[in-house]
Design a protein around this nucleic acid. Structure first.
Lengths: 230, 230
DNA sequence: CGTTCGCTTGAACTAATTCAAGATAAGTGG
DNA sequence: CCACTTATCTTGAATTAGTTCAAGCGAACG
């Protein structure tokens, strides 16, 4: 692969050339289709991935057969880094939400390179810190909030990530998003999501079609998320 | 404070002396009593802490007045590092579970030192990775498991952390542990915890006194946590 | 054109919360 | 040491949020 294709990403921007080439010696460019799995829960992890284009989610299958979405990743994110560093098995499955372009690299090499180039390690610290913060937020939500609130919050968050403002001021969520997806993201069932969405649709808060949602009154959702009266 | 008091901790063990002294120039030794607060949610964070002795927990107060325990820390853990690095306000309150000895240091200095000594940054990466993993586990549990299972899992985990095996083979949890505490750790109410514990006590699985619990049949709890029949 | 997939809706059920009242135990100060 | 206060815990009863099961609808897709 071309050297500059990675140089452009912030993450490796300032690597000295020798280190950069060492890391890249193991790199493979990879593309996967929407819905395809990058890796499966339980597989041995030797490599990790830099997501260059597309979005994907980390899903955990529970023994009881439920699926829980742990996190979703966007461009610039490193995926599977932590487990690849320890060559543990992947604790979850990574599934592409759309067509993705990734660079696969050796976990062991990343260790080496981080040890020799502190700014890179510090950047990883920042990334992990941000994710930990998100995870803590979700723990708080799951512990203390009701499904309605969590759902509303999810939609508002998605609006920031993939929202496209329409001419009439409404926000179209530009991604395939089934009731099942929302259920997995919020620890509930698709039936409950369905009921909630139709209720909100009746109130004119949003428009929910098959796998696509448009927010008509985002403020109303924010109010619900924060449990404000009215 | 004496230089060797920090040298002994793994975290700063291999720092070159100049860096070490630079970091330590801002260090203050601090002791807090059980129940005292190290910092409060919303306070501006300029310093972070290395926990040298004792245990403490990170609690988040929700707008509705509930408390959620996000994580608990033991000896060797760094607390408030991430927020101190960005000098954000603390997103949660840190409360001592027992008498604690800590070293407070400047967040800004830590940035500098990490940038100049990669092994330290890498060690922070490892620590954050471990915490992220724990957080993901809790998300899965809160999303997919029922209160009983989560409670059972909590007790088993606590047995590993603070369990003391008794002569008769039972495991005494060596810490003050109220129903309320367990409720906050598992996203439920103290009443539900109380009912569950008394039920388990009737079945001879454990003995639950006031703020202290002894596990009589840990295997039974593991079975419940994993939702095995019987 | 029929099958599949995503969605809706109802009805029964259940886990868990909430509210309330009281019991037990642990300090606290006289 | 006792009475008083406070905190922890228990238990019941009512309520509710959410799940589960089940049946059917409608749009997409081969």
């Amino acid at each position: 692969m071309k050297a500059h294709s990675l140089k452009q990403t912030e993450f490796f921007a300032d690597l000295p050339l020798p280190l950069y080439e060492r890391l890249m010696s193991s790199a493979r460019l990879q593309e996967i289709e929407s819905g395809a799995l990058l890796f499966r829960q339980g597989e041995p992890a030797r490599v990790f991935y830099l997501l260059q284009r597309g979005r994907l989610r980390l899903v955990q299958h529970t023994p009881e057969g439920k699926d829980v979405t742990l996190a979703t990743f966007g461009e610039g994110d490193l995926i599977g880094l932590i487990v690849a560093l320890n060559s543990e098995p992947y604790p979850a499955t990574a599934e592409a939400l759309e067509r993705c372009e990734l660079v696969a690299m050796q976990g062991a090499l990343m260790w080496e390179v981080m040890l020799q180039h502190a700014p890179l390690a510090v950047r990883v610290v920042r990334m992990l810190a941000a994710r930990l913060h998100e995870a803590h937020e979700r723990i708080r939500e799951l512990s203390a909030e009701r499904v309605q609130q969590r759902l509303a919050r999810s939609l508002v968050r998605l609006a920031h990530k993939v929202g496209v403002e329409q001419a009439d001021g409404s926000i179209y969520l530009n991604m395939r998003l089934s009731r099942q997806d929302l259920a997995q993201m919020n620890g509930t069932t698709l039936e409950t999501v369905s009921r909630t969405l139709t209720a909100w649709q009746r109130e004119g808060i949003l428009e929910a079609k098959r796998e696509q949602i448009t927010l008509l009154k985002p403020e109303a959702l924010i109010a619900i998320a924060d449990d404000l009266p009215n």
